[in-house]
Design a binder for these strands. Structure first.
Lengths: 143, 143
DNA sequence: TCAACAGTTTAGAATGATTCTAAGGAGGTT
DNA sequence: AACCTCCTTAGAATCATTCTAAACTGTTGA
C-alpha cells in the first residue's frame, strides 16, 4: 500500500527537524511543501488556516502559528516582513530576494544571483550578519 | 522676541507640506526633527508618545499615529518595516538602507552610496519601482 | 474683532494579528 | 497498556493600530 506509509518524505523531514510528525504538522507541511501549484509560496497564518479548513483538516489557529514558527526555526520556512502587522512565510529558503506589489500585497521571488550586492558595509564590531534582505517595492496602479 | 515667532522653520515646513501647523503637530515635528541628539532617528509611535509626555506635550496616541502617517505621506518621514507588528519612522528621508540589530530591535542607517545594487532585475511589466529596501540583519549576541 | 466652516484632536471603542493559558489529547518508549 | 512528555486547542489576553463621533481650533472673510 502506498498511502499511510510511515516513513514518507514529509515524516522524515519533520523528524530531521526535531519535530514530532503529528497529524496537524504533517497536514500543514503537506499544504506548504507539496502544494499542487508548485513551490515558492508566500503565505500568511490566516491563509494557511483557510487552506487547511478547505482541505478538511481540523487545526486551530494557535497550532498554525506554532507550526509556522517551529518550521521557520527549523529552517523549513523563512519569515518575510514587508508590511507592519502581517507576516508572510516563504517556502523558498534558499538565498533570494523579493518584489513586493504594494497594491495587492503579493510577493514574488527574485533569485539570489540576480541581485549583486557590492561594497556591503562591514557590520559594526561584534555583530554578525544573519541575513541580507532586498525588497523591491513596486506599484502596478498607474499612480 | 525669539520664541513664538509665527514663521519659524517648522511652521513653514508643515505649511509647505500642506499641513496646518497645529500645537500638536508642531510639538511632534520639534521632537522629531529638532531633537538635541541629532538626526537619523528611528522611532515608533509609542516612543514618540512617551517623548511627548516627558516633554509635557499633551497629545493622544491617535494624533501621534495620524501625524506620523501625514508626515510620511508628505515626505518628511519614511516608514521602515523590519519586524512584524511594529513600525519605525525614520527622520532620514534620503536614499539609504539599514542595519537591523535583531537582539535589541535597533536600526542604524547605511548611506545609500555604500550599497551598490548591480543587475537589479527589471520589474514585471506595468510595475514601477517605488523603492528598494536593503536590510542587513545582524546579531550581537554570541549565538 | 469675530463668526463660521473646514480641518484637527481626542477618548474610548473596535479591529486584527498574534500570543498566552491551562486543560485535555496523542506520539513514542518501555 | 502505562506513562511521560510533547502537542493541540478554545478562548481569553495582549499589542499595535485604526475607527468613531463629538468637541475643539486655525484660518478666512466680513
Amino acid at each position: 500500500m502506498t498511502k499511510d506509509r510511515p516513513y514518507s518524505a514529509l515524516v522524515q523531514r519533520l523528524k530531521v527537524a526535531g519535530l514530532r510528525p503529528t497529524r496537524q504538522r504533517l497536514a500543514l507541511a503537506k499544504l506548504l511543501f507539496e502544494a499542487p501549484g508548485g513551490h515558492d509560496r508566500h503565505i500568511t497564518a490566516e491563509q494557511l488556516h483557510a487552506e487547511a479548513v478547505a482541505d478538511n483538516v481540523r487545526v486551530s489557529l494557535a497550532t498554525i502559528y506554532n507550526s509556522l514558527h517551529q518550521f521557520t526555526e527549523a529552517g523549513l520556512l523563512r519569515e518575510v516582513v514587508v508590511e507592519s502587522g502581517r507576516s508572510y512565510f516563504d517556502t523558498n529558503v534558499t538565498d533570494h530576494h523579493h518584489f513586493y506589489f504594494e497594491d495587492s500585497g503579493r510577493l514574488q521571488d527574485i533569485p539570489g544571483e540576480m541581485v549583486q550586492l557590492e561594497n556591503l558595509p562591514t557590520p559594526p564590531v561584534g555583530a554578525k550578519v544573519a541575513r541580507v534582505d532586498v525588497i523591491i517595492r513596486v506599484n502596478e496602479s498607474g499612480e
